[in-house]
């Protein structure tokens, strides 16, 4: 399913990633599905729960305590998801996916990303090198969960 992204949404994701560097940023992508195309109309920045006191251990336990932090992990607070989704529905939008940054790392999903991914959602990853946002790529989990498949992103003016 092709992904369309407005230039201002593209810029919003990249600047959020730069702002949070060297930490990972995260947020939700809202929009509409039109035929076979997902049109992403808004990127809503959300706090990285791994940076909060307690690190979100009660929501999703860490796999390698001591090695994981907001520098290399992100976790979205499910209460934020509920709130954003409710607000989006009231405005006729739906959650099409999520975005996060890879500080000093390419915009390619890790095995950890894959293991935690859900089908159908569009996952946008933006690379940030030394604080400067770089390439952005979109990925969708394959039906058998074995890998992510790249999804071309088209930036369109609305």
């Amino acid at each position: 399913m092709a992904i369309k992204l407005a230039p201002e949404t593209f810029d919003a994701v990249r600047s959020h990633a730069a702002r949070e560097y060297p930490n990972e940023c995260c947020g939700v992508l809202l929009g509409r599905v039109e035929g076979g195309t997902r049109e992403i109309l808004e990127a809503v920045p959300l706090p990285n729960l791994r940076a909060a006191p307690g690190g979100g251990e009660d929501v999703l336990p860490l796999e390698s305590p001591g090695l994981e932090s907001e520098r290399n992990r992100f976790l979205i607070d499910p209460r934020d998801q509920l709130r954003v989704e409710k607000d989006a529905r009231a405005r006729g939008l739906e959650v099409l996916g999520y975005y996060h940054s890879h500080p000093d790392h390419p915009a390619r999903p890790s095995i950890y990303d894959r293991d935690h991914a859900w089908p159908w959602y569009a996952y946008i990853i933006v690379s940030v090198q030394r604080g400067e946002p770089q390439e952005l790529a979109c990925w969708v989990l394959a039906a058998d969960r074995s890998r992510f498949e790249p999804e071309p992103v088209e930036t369109v003016n609305r």
Binding site: E24, N72, L75, H105, S110, I111, H116, W118
Partner: peptide, 13 residues
């Protein structure tokens, strides 16, 4: 509510 999480390969840190 699906957990939304991800991150980098640990070997890179």
């Amino acid at each position: 509510v699906p957990s939304i999480a991800g991150g980098l390969p640990l070997r890179c840190v």
